[in-house]
Design a protein around this nucleic acid. Structure first.
Length: 957
DNA sequence: CTGCCTGACTCTCCTTTGGCGTTT
DNA sequence: AAAACGCCTTTGGAGAGTCAGGCA
C-alpha cells in the first residue's frame, strides 16, 4: 500500500527528477530512465539484467556537476520532500477510508454478536443512576474496556506476522518501483494484506485472523458497536525524505551490499527471517521492453572477490541478487520488529465520558491507558535486543479519526520528546526551517479538522499542551535548539540576550535558561524606525560588530576603522538595546505652521506616532507640489526605505503639514487632480482622434496607390473593380469626434488644410480595385524593401495601436492589410519611391472625380513616376495633381517646398514629427512632441522612422 | 545505534536618504 | 535655464538551516 502511494507521489512530481543517462554497452535497447537517480541498470544480454546499487560515494564522484560535497542535489531534496508530503496525504486518506468503513452497520452488528455478554454487561452497568461517583464510573469504564481489549487480543483475534503497513526508506521504495515491471506487480504483493471494502474486514473478522492493522481497525469498529465514542488512531508511515541510515553503510562493504541486494530482490517478506536465502533467478517480466534476467555464477564470483560490478565492466549474464553465505560471519542484520509485540501503526482511543478524556488502547498487545507504549523510537534505557532493528515504524504524524470522519493531530500525546524532536521534524520553525513543511502540515490538518469545536476538543488541547510542558528538559543538544521552554546561551541569536539570567539548570556544564526570559535587542537606529528612542543614560545590553549594508555605511565604517587603527581597536561595534530601555519618540511640535525637518529636509514617519503634534499627514502623491505652490511650509514624509544596489532609497508618501493648512491643501490638491484628469482625458481623445485620422489617410493613400498601380500595370481603371473599404463608426464615437472641435481641443483641425473633422469624412466610401494577384508569402519579403511596405506597416500600426476604439469596425470587403492587393511592381522588386506613389495617389484622387478618358493618361504619368527612384525629385508630378480645393493644394505645395529646402536626413526625428503627422498636409510643424513607445527596439525605431518619412512625403504631396 | 561535529551548500533576513537624462 | 519628473534596477553578507559523513 505504501508502495503504491509512493508511486503516485513520484509520478506526480516526475519533472523534478534529473534524468540520468545510462550506459548500455553493446545494446540496441532503449535506455531505461531512472527516475530516482539511484540505480544503474545495465543490460548485459537481452535476457539478463544487472542491477547495481551505487554507493553514496560513487554517486558523489560521478555527479560532481550536481553538487560537490552535499549528497543530494537541491532538486532531489525537493523531490523527496514532495514525495513525503504526497505520501503522507495518501496514507491519511487511506486511514480515513478505513475509518469510514468501520462505521459499516453490518460489520458492527457482526462484531457485537461476537462479544461475550459478560463483557458487554460490564459496560452496561456503568450509569449515573447506578454509580453516582464520577471517578468510580471512570475506573469501571476503563476496566471494562480493558477486559474487552484483552479478550480481543488474547482470545479472539490472532495477528499475522505480515501484511501490516511498515515504513520504508525512500531508497527501498525507489528500488521496488524500479524493479516492479508494472503496476500489477507493485500492487499485488504477497506481503500486503488487501482490504478492499468493509466486506474484506468482515472476512478477516470471521477468519479471526489478519494483520495487526486489521486487528486494530476491527477493534475500533467493535468499540463503536458498543456505543463508545471511539477513534481510529493512525501513525502515518510515510516515506521519509531524508536519506536512510542504510545508505551510509551501503558503499563498498560486501555485506552491506549483499543486504541491499536482498532488499532488491523484493521476494522475501518484510518480516520473514531470510538467513537461508540463496541466490535466485529472477525472471523479470518485461520491464518496459526490457529483457529478462537470470542469475549466474559469474556474478557470485565477483561478489566473493569483493568486486563490485560496475558500469562498463563487461559481465554478461549476471544477476547477482545477494551474496551467498560467506566465510565470515555476517554482521547482525536489521530485524523486522515483531508485529505482535512492537508498537502498532493503528490503534484505538475510546472516550471516557466520566473522565472526559481519551484513553488509548493497543488491541494487539492488549494494553490500555498507556500513551507511552506507542512510540517506536528505541529509548536509551530499554536494552531489549542487541540486534539492530529495522526502522519500520517511525512516529511523526499521529492522527485520531473519529466516527464522523473528522480527525485531530494527537502526535503530542504519543511521541516521546515531542517538543524536543518530533515537532521539529514535523516542520521545524514556521518561519524558515522545514521549508514550509509546518505550514503544509497545518493545512493538511485543517482539512480534516471539524469545523466546529466540541468541549472535549478544548479539554484535549489543554491536555496536549500540558504534555508538552511536562515533558521535561531535553537530553540532547539538538533538543534544546528552538525548544519552546528552554534555551542555551550558545543558541542565542546575535541580537538576543537572556534577561534576567536565571539559571534553570545545567546541560553539560552550560547553563539552561527559560525561553521566556530571552529578549531581542535592536540598535538605537532600529528603535527609531519603530518610533522609539533610547532612554537617557541607558547602557547597551550587548555590543556587536557593526554590519555595513549600504555603501555609505561601509565607507563610514572604513573611516571609523582607520581611526580605530590609529587608536586601539580595529572593529567597529555598535550597542544593542532592549525595548524596555526605550521610550516612545516624541517629535518636536509644529509651531506657527512650521514643520520640523531632519537633516535630509524631510520628516521621519515610520509609524503614525511619529507625527508631530499639530500636524497632519496627507499621503497623496504630488501633494507636495500643491503645498509648495500655495506657499505652505511642509515636509515630505518618509515612511520606509527601499533597497537597491546596496543603496537605501527613502519611500516618500505624501507630506506632513500643519493641521490648519490641511483643508486648503487637500482642496487644492483635489482640484488640481480633477484638472489633470480632465487634461489626460482630453489628451487621450486627441490621440484617439489622431490615430483615426491617420488610419483613414493611410487607407486613402493605399487606395490611390492601388488604383495607380493597377492603371500602370493593366491600363484598366481602378474604379472598375468592385471591392471597397468601408469604415463605420457607431454613435458614441461619432459624437466624440463631433464634439472635439467644440471643446477647442482640436482647433487646428478647423483651419484650412485640415480635413476629416467629422465622422462623415471618416465613413466615406472608398472603392478599391479587386485584386488580381495572390501574393505568396516568400514574395512578401521583397516588399519589405520598398516604401510600399512601409505604408502598409504604418497602417497596421495604426490599427493595432494600443487604444481600441469602441464601436469601430472595419467592414471589409478586402483584406485591408493584406499584401494580396499590392501591385506587381512592388513585388517584383522595382524600387518605387513614396513620392511616386503619392503622386499616383493624387492622380487617382483626381481620377475618382474625372471621367474614364482621363484614366489612361494618368496611368501613363504614374508609370513614369514609378521609374523615379530618388526620394527628392517631385517636380514632374506637381503638374499632374490638379486639386479642386485650392487651399489644400496651396498648403501641400508649401509643405513640399519647405521640405525640399533642406536635406531629408536633417529632418527632426520621427517621433517628434509624429504628433503633427496627421495634419501635416495642412499645418506647419507645430513642435509638439510625442514620445516613442517605451517597448520599441532600435530596429523598430528605425523602421518607424522610415515609415514616418515615407508617410510625410506622401502626405506632403 | 545515537548524538555531536564538520563541511558544503542553500536560504532568509537585514539593510535604512541617488544619479542621470528628459520633460516641463 | 532651472526645476521637476521618471526611469534605472532587485544588493550582498551574516547567520541559520539542511544534509551527509565521520567519529566517539
Amino acid at each position: 500500500m505504501s508502495t503504491g502511494d509512493a508511486q503516485d507521489a513520484n509520478s506526480s512530481s516526475e519533472e523534478d527528477f534529473d534524468w540520468e543517462e545510462v550506459d548500455v554497452p553493446g545494446q540496441q535497447e532503449p535506455e531505461l530512465p531512472q527516475p530516482y537517480g539511484e540505480l544503474e541498470v545495465q543490460l548485459e544480454a537481452p535476457k539478463n539484467i544487472e542491477i547495481t546499487l551505487p554507493s553514496a560515494r560513487a554517486k558523489k564522484g560521478e555527479g560532481s556537476k550536481r553538487q560537490a560535497g552535499t549528497g543530494i542535489s537541491h532538486a532531489e531534496r525537493m523531490t523527496r520532500v514532495t514525495c513525503h508530503k504526497i505520501h503522507t496525504v495518501c496514507m491519511l486518506a487511506n486511514a480515513r477510508v478505513r475509518n469510514k468503513w468501520l462505521n459499516d452497520e453490518t460489520l458492527q452488528a457482526r462484531l457485537l454478536s461476537l462479544v461475550p455478554m459478560s463483557l458487554q454487561d460490564n459496560l452496561a452497568i456503568i450509569h449515573k443512576s447506578r454509580v453516582p461517583e464520577r471517578a468510580k464510573r471512570g475506573r469501571m469504564f476503563e476496566s471494562a474496556v480493558g477486559r474487552i481489549a484483552t479478550w480481543w487480543a488474547e482470545t479472539y483475534f490472532s495477528v499475522d506476522r505480515t501484511g501490516h503497513i511498515v515504513n520504508r526508506t525512500y531508497e527501498d521504495v525507489a528500488r521496488e518501483m524500479a524493479e516492479a515491471g508494472n503496476d500489477e506487480e507493485l500492487y499485488n504483493r504477497d506481503d500486503m494484506e488487501m482490504i478492499r471494502s468493509p466486506k474484506s474486514l468482515m472476512k478477516h473478522l470471521l477468519m479471526r485472523r489478519g494483520s495487526r492493522d486489521t486487528s486494530s481497525q476491527l477493534f475500533t469498529a467493535l468499540c463503536r458497536a458498543l456505543d463508545i465514542p471511539t477513534r481510529l488512531v493512525v501513525s502515518l508511515q510515510s516515506v521519509p525524505w531524508k536519506t536512510s541510515s542504510d545508505k551510509k553503510k551501503a558503499p563498498k562493504k560486501p555485506s552491506a551490499k549483499g543486504k541491499s541486494k536482498e532488499k532488491a530482490t523484493n521476494i522475501e517478506d518484510e518480516s520473514e527471517d531470510d538467513e537461508d536465502m540463496e541466490p535466485v533467478d529472477i525472471p523479470i517480466p518485461d520491464i518496459k521492453g526490457k529483457g529478462k534476467a537470470k542469475a549466474t555464477d559469474e556474478d557470485e564470483d565477483a561478489m566473493k572477490n569483493n568486486i563490485k560490478p560496475r558500469k562498463g565492466m563487461s559481465k554478461p549474464h549476471v544477476v547477482k541478487l545477494r551474496k551467498s553465505k560467506s566465510q565470515q560471519p555476517r554482521p547482525p542484520k536489521p530485524q523486522a520488529s515483531d508485529p505482535t509485540t512492537s508498537p502498532p501503526v493503528f490503534w484505538t482511543e475510546v472516550f471516557s465520558r466520566a473522565d472526559s478524556m481519551w484513553i488509548a488502547i493497543d488491541p494487539i498487545r492488549g494494553i490500555i491507558g498507556k500513551r507511552q507504549v506507542f512510540d517506536p523510537t528505541p529509548s536509551s534505557t530499554s536494552g531489549q535486543s542487541k540486534l539492530p532493528r529495522r526502522r519500520d515504524n517511525i512516529m511523526l504524524y499521529v492522527i485520531a479519526l473519529e466516527e464522523d470522519g473528522y480527525g485531530r493531530d494527537v502526535t503530542a500525546r504519543y511521541a516521546r520528546d515531542y517538543t524536543a524532536k518530533v515537532a521539529k521534524v514535523q516542520g521545524a520553525r514556521a518561519s524558515s526551517g522545514g521549508r514550509g513543511r509546518r505550514e503544509w502540515w497545518e493545512r493538511v490538518i485543517q482539512v480534516i479538522t471539524r469545523p466546529y469545536r466540541l468541549q472535549r476538543d478544548d479539554l484535549e488541547d489543554d491536555e496536549l499542551r500540558n504534555h508538552q510542558l511536562t515533558e521535561g528538559m531535553p537530553t540532547t543538544l539538538a533538543g534544546f535548539k528552538d525548544h519552546p521552554l528552554y534555551v542555551l546561551s550558545r543558541h542565542l541569536k546575535r541580537d538576543e540576550v537572556v534577561d534576567p539570567p536565571v539559571e534553570l539548570g545545567k546541560f553539560r556544564g552550560d547553563p539552561v535558561y527559560a525561553r521566556s526570559s530571552v529578549v531581542s535587542l535592536k540598535t538605537a537606529e532600529n528603535w527609531m524606525r519603530q518610533g522609539r528612542v533610547i532612554r537617557e543614560g541607558c547602557q547597551p545590553m550587548k555590543m556587536v560588530k557593526q554590519r555595513a549594508m549600504t555603501i555609505a555605511k561601509q565607507r563610514e565604517i572604513e573611516v571609523a576603522m582607520e581611526r580605530g587603527h590609529n587608536g586601539e581597536e580595529g572593529e567597529v561595534l555598535q550597542g544593542l538595546y532592549a525595548r524596555n530601555q526605550t521610550d516612545l519618540y516624541k517629535p518636536p511640535p509644529i509651531e506657527n505652521g512650521k514643520v520640523p525637518k531632519n537633516d535630509f529636509g524631510n520628516i521621519d514617519l515610520y509609524v503614525p506616532s511619529m507625527l508631530p503634534p499639530g500636524g497632519v499627514h496627507i499621503p497623496f502623491k504630488g501633494v507636495a507640489k500643491i503645498a509648495r505652490k500655495l506657499g505652505f511650509d511642509f515636509a515630505e514624509a518618509v515612511t520606509g526605505f527601499e533597497f537597491r544596489k546596496r543603496r537605501a532609497v527613502p519611500l516618500i508618501e505624501g507630506i506632513v503639514v500643519s493641521a490648519e493648512n490641511e483643508a486648503v491643501i487637500v482642496e487644492a490638491f483635489l482640484a488640481a487632480e480633477g484638472d489633470a484628469e480632465e487634461k489626460a482625458k482630453a489628451k487621450r481623445l486627441d490621440q484617439v482622434h489622431k490615430r483615426w485620422v491617420r488610419l483613414v489617410q493611410g487607407l486613402r493613400i493605399r487606395q490611390r496607390l492601388q488604383a495607380q498601380y493597377v492603371d500602370a500595370d493593366n491600363g484598366i481603371g481602378g474604379e472598375s473593380a468592385g471591392t471597397s473599404i468601408q469604415v463605420t463608426i457607431d454613435q458614441p464615437q461619432v459624437r466624440n469626434l463631433q464634439r472635439l472641435p467644440e471643446r477647442g481641443v482640436y482647433k487646428g483641425m478647423k483651419q484650412p488644410g485640415g480635413f476629416l473633422i467629422t465622422a462623415d469624412d471618416v465613413v466615406e466610401q472608398h472603392h478599391l480595385p479587386k485584386s488580381r494577384h495572390r501574393a505568396d508569402p516568400v514574395q512578401v519579403d521583397h516588399v519589405q524593401e520598398t516604401n510600399g511596405r512601409a505604408i502598409l506597416m504604418s497602417e497596421s500600426e495604426v490599427v493595432s495601436s494600443e487604444e481600441p476604439v469602441p464601436g469601430v469596425q472595419l467592414e471589409d470587403t478586402v483584406d485591408v492589410m493584406g499584401v494580396d492587393d499590392l501591385p506587381n511592381e512592388s513585388r517584383s522588386g522595382v524600387p518605387i519611391t513614396m513620392q511616386a506613389l503619392a503622386e499616383a495617389a493624387h492622380a487617382h484622387k483626381d481620377i475618382s472625380h474625372a471621367g474614364p478618358e482621363e484614366l489612361s493618361s494618368r496611368a501613363a504619368v504614374a508609370t513614369v513616376a514609378s521609374g523615379v527612384s530618388t526620394p527628392g525629385s517631385s517636380a514632374p508630378t506637381k503638374k499632374v495633381s490638379t486639386r479642386t480645393a485650392r487651399g489644400k493644394r496651396k498648403r501641400a505645395s508649401e509643405g513640399s517646398d519647405a521640405e525640399s529646402d533642406k536635406p531629408k536626413e536633417d529632418e527632426p526625428t520621427p517621433r517628434k514629427r509624429r504628433g503633427e503627422a496627421a495634419p501635416a498636409a495642412a499645418t506647419p510643424p507645430s513642435g509638439r512632441v510625442l514620445r516613442p513607445r517605451a517597448s520599441k527596439t532600435a530596429s523598430q525605431l528605425k523602421e518607424g522612422k522610415g515609415i514616418e518619412l515615407a508617410y510625410r512625403r506622401a502626405v506632403a504631396e
